[in-house]
Amino acid sequence: MSLKALRNVQPWPPTDPFVYRFYEVVMLYGPVIKDVAHEMFGDGIMSAIDMKLDLKKVEEHGAERAEFTFNGKWLPYRRF
């Protein structure tokens, strides 16, 4: 299933538990993910405009799990 992003403003801190967990993942793992991405692709950012998000339900050891895939264009940092 592909999801199209709807942009809206969320309260801070997030009041919805699902949204709060996404913020928690980014706050906890974001710096490490950034370091690994920079090692793999060079200094830059992933586009949030030219991005696809895929959500799948997977079974692992008899339990349902959620698998999220963020597929975004890599944009190298440029000097102006």
Rank of each mutant, 00 (worst) to 15 (best):
P17W: 03
F80N: 08
S47I: 01
L75M: 10
D50S: 12
L75T: 12
E59N: 06
R21C: 10
G72C: 05
E60Y: 01
W74M: 15
Q10P: 02
V25H: 07
Y29R: 07
D50M: 05
D16A: 08
F68P: 02
F70Q: 05
P11T: 02
E59A: 12
A66P: 01
L75W: 01
H38C: 06
E39F: 02
V9M: 13
A66R: 05
V26N: 11
F70R: 04
F70E: 11
S2Q: 11
M1E: 11
W12P: 06
L6R: 11
E60K: 02
V9S: 15
K52L: 08
M1I: 14
E24T: 07
K73V: 12
F18V: 13
R7T: 12
D43W: 01
D54A: 06
D16P: 04
D50A: 09
D35C: 04
E59T: 09
R7V: 10
E60G: 09
F70K: 04
Y77C: 14
K57Y: 01
E39G: 11
A63T: 09
L55E: 01
H38G: 04
R7I: 07
N8V: 06
P76S: 12
E39H: 05
R65V: 12
K34L: 05
A63L: 07
L6Y: 05
T69N: 13
M51H: 05
G44L: 02
R79V: 12
F70N: 04
H38K: 03
F68S: 13
K56F: 03
R65N: 14
P31N: 02
M1G: 15
V19F: 01
N71V: 04
P11W: 00
Y20W: 02
K34P: 05
N71K: 11
Y23N: 15
D35V: 08
A63H: 03
Y29V: 01
E39T: 06
Y77K: 15
F41Y: 11
G42F: 00
F18S: 10
D16L: 03
D43K: 10
E39S: 07
R65A: 13
I33H: 06
P76L: 02
I33E: 06
V58I: 14
M27D: 10
F68M: 14
V36P: 03
E67D: 09
L53C: 09
F18K: 10
S47N: 07
V19R: 00
K57S: 10
F80G: 15
W74S: 15
K73P: 11
W74H: 15
V26Y: 02
L3T: 10
V32H: 00
D54M: 04
V36S: 06
F22Q: 12
L28A: 07
V26K: 05
L75N: 09
K73Q: 13
K73L: 15
K73S: 15
R7F: 07
L75F: 03
H38F: 02
L75K: 13
K56A: 14
N71L: 03
M40A: 12
S47A: 12
V26D: 09
N8C: 13
D50E: 11
D16F: 01
M46H: 06
G42H: 03
K4L: 13
R78C: 09
R79S: 13
K56L: 11
A48H: 06
P76W: 01
V19A: 13
K4E: 15
P31K: 00
M27C: 04
E64T: 14
E24G: 04
H61T: 05
G62Q: 01
K52S: 11
M1Y: 09
P13K: 03
R7M: 09
D35I: 04
